[in-house]
Write a protein that binds this DNA or RNA. Structure first.
Length: 212
DNA sequence: CACCAGGCAAGTA
DNA sequence: TACTTGCATGGT
């Protein structure tokens, strides 16, 4: 399996090249984006973030002072805007109270302790927590998502009921903990998923992993 | 028109 | 523990 995982990575990298994740101007923007992108395509999230920038509201201080309705209006294009406003507020409270909105302070915290803290925030689940850890704070943790699971299931590398933790351990116990590689690997799986492994599977037969 | 997107929590049994 | 459901916009 170790070799298989490496083989897949190198194949994807050679086909698609570096993906340049996470598309954002700052770690804080990554964290906001991680919450907004829950079960939503990136284009809609991008529009929501553009609204926040246009309103000059993209900072922990500004966002936390913004009235609920005002914030909900700004992030509307991202969908689920009421629940996401609540989740953003929950995260901001956490970020301000525990870390004084300091990325630097947050980065100093131990990886697993911080992950546990993030999971304690209502609205932050495993994928969102791991996305924040990897893409905002450069911590060596592997992000799993629906594409990861679907791709590995379709290639018969896992069974259908594999859990998030099982998938994550599969990667982390078989690969060296390398932030840059974890970054690229997850992004490449999303790219592969978008192009060849949608739910309603238009072109699974053309997937570059077929011939491995 | 139907289907889906870089999830998560709450409710039910 | 193991399902099920609500949340919502915008693109194909």
């Amino acid at each position: 399996m170790r070799e298989k995982l490496k083989e897949i990575y190198h194949k994807l990298y050679s086909v698609f090249g570096p993906q340049g994740w996470w598309p954002a101007d700052s770690p804080f923007e990554v964290m906001v984006g991680a919450i907004l992108t829950q079960n939503t395509n990136w284009q809609n999230v991008s529009a929501a973030i553009a609204n926040l920038k246009k309103a000059k509201a993209l900072s922990a201080e500004k966002l936390s002072h913004l009235p609920f309705r005002k914030l909900a209006q700004l992030i509307r294009p991202a969908g689920y805007y009421n629940i996401k406003t609540k989740r953003l507020k929950n995260f901001l409270n956490f970020f301000l109270k525990k870390y004084q909105a300091s990325i630097k302070k947050m980065t100093k915290k131990d990886l697993l302790a911080l992950r546990h803290q993030l999971l304690g925030v209502n609205g932050i689940g495993q994928e969102t927590a791991d996305s924040i850890l990897l893409y905002a704070l450069n911590k060596p943790i592997f992000v799993v998502d629906a594409y990861t699971k679907r791709i590995f299931f379709r290639h018969k590398l896992i069974n259908k009921n594999a859990t998030y933790s099982q998938l994550q351990h599969l990667f982390m116990q078989n690969l060296k903990a390398d932030v840059q590689m974890f970054n690229e690997y997850h992004a490449l799986l999303v790219k592969l998923g978008k192009d060849f492994c949608r739910k309603n599977n238009p072109r699974c037969s053309k997937c570059p992993l077929q011939k491995l």
